[in-house]
Amino acid sequence: MKKLSRFNDWVDGELDFPLSTLHDARPERHERGRHHSMSDSRSLSAFSKVYALLCLLVCLLLVCTLLAVAAALPGFGSEENPTVNEVSEHYVGQAEHETGAENVIAGMILNYRGFDTFGESCVLFLAVCCVMQLLWSTGAEKKQKTDFGGQDVILSRVCRVLVPCVLCFGLCVLFSGHTSPGGGFSGGSVLGAALIIFALAFGDGAVSRFFSRRIYNLVRITGLMVYALMFGCYIFLGANGIESELSRYIVLVVDIAVGLVVMSTMYGFYSFYTKGEL
């Protein structure tokens, strides 16, 4: 906790980075006096003019080049497209047999390219960690932020109808990701949206009653751990050798794990942006 506040101080510029050699340069700059600032601002405005011209030039060059490339591409929707090759044919043809998922895209991202999706989940996890470190409010700031939730009658009445429907829809999308359109990412974001609406309508206290910081961290980490363990075991057991039923089960579990990570990410972003804590 103390380290975190030191980090915050460093981000705010109140604390210098330990191996700073900038300290020695500072008094020298002070002596140079203020008459430099006028010429500085003049050179700055001249620089901004040149900069705008250069930017326009670069953009024009880029648009010409890219349009020339786009005109040379095979037409939209044609079968000669180089992306429609034997790889995609293998995915479509073998996905149901090898992964047990009727949704080829879910089978592809959670089975053939499972480690890639694991990396994506880690990116989300790290994004929440970065936002947490940047926006975790210290004691002084915390008092200024007031909780507007739970005051609005119309919103809370609407949400009493809306939140169960959105939750059901999110769960439906999450659990049927391997057989129909949907999956962990979309289902997880719908669930996160339901949590955010709930927090807006009934106040943050209502959410933290069942989704406290402990549980939040637990859900977040459990999602990633379940993904890593299940997929690691699956690869270790020989991937394609497993019969179809078991691998469908693995796709479903991994999908739910991704959904948990995405849900907690969405709610975490909301929570840290509005009140700076969980």
Partner: peptide, 26 residues
């Protein structure tokens, strides 16, 4: 880039895994 004229999204339905029915999933 992934779309092919006249094909449907890559969610297998009753038609089975007929390669020429679905668009590119990549």
């Amino acid at each position: 880039r992934g779309f092919v004229e006249g094909r449907v999204a890559a969610v297998l339905t009753d038609g089975g895994a007929d390669v020429s029915r679905y668009v590119n999933p990549i």
